[in-house]
Write a protein that binds this DNA or RNA. Sequence first.
DNA 1: TCGCTATATAGCCACATAATTATACTTGCA
DNA 2: TGCAAGTATAATTATGTGGCTATATAGCGA
Lengths: 105, 105
Amino acid sequence: MKLNAQQLERVAALFRAFAEPTRLAIVQELKADEMSVSDIVACLTTSQANVSKQLKILHDAGLVSRRKQATQVLYRIADPMVFELCRIVCEKLNRDAVRPAKLKF
Amino acid sequence: MKLNAQQLERVAALFRAFAEPTRLAIVQELKADEMSVSDIVACLTTSQANVSKQLKILHDAGLVSRRKQATQVLYRIADPMVFELCRIVCEKLNRDAVRPAKLKF
DNA sequence: TCGCTATATAGCCACATAATTATACTTGCA
DNA sequence: TGCAAGTATAATTATGTGGCTATATAGCGA
């Protein structure tokens, strides 16, 4: 049974959320802990506006969830499949590498 | 241990190869069998030039392999992780769907 | 209320890329 | 050798989007 065009687009959209280094960097920061926007900004080298924008994309894709706490908004990974996908991709990159300097998400 | 910018870019590049419906449609066609370019073109609704172009992207990402046979070029999935990623993403989309019309890659 | 902190959004620009058309390359066969 | 089929590439266009600056919104404390 094959996916139709609309279903393929939904699958592509989910992959698209992962297909950007800044969003992956955010996901990586969220791997251990729930974090506020400003905490994430402090870890990265981009603007607060950009972090908020990328968090919105991750949230719209259902990859992160948020909750408000006082003036802050705390984000966390919403689905463990996020880690699973990153792990599988890293394993492939490690397999393909001639001189393995192992990636581990 | 966190991935640096270059490593994140490599991970993103791999996800990017999946982040497009036409490429996913090609992958889906290749799920069962090795296929020639013209066979793939016959299954899809886009041009031969575009199929060749997307196949090159998939090949550069290490997701498909090719072998020549007479005048044809036969493509196949190079790594079973391709199916695993698609399966995981479909499972998430099925979980998120309110009214489940199960996707299965 | 005023001001401060935290976050989100709007507008803009630069760049990437999907798809098309046209053309080049490659291989087998008459 | 010349042709035809199969595949790849080039050039172009249109669209999408990452990132920036500026601004808006929200909530808390003085």
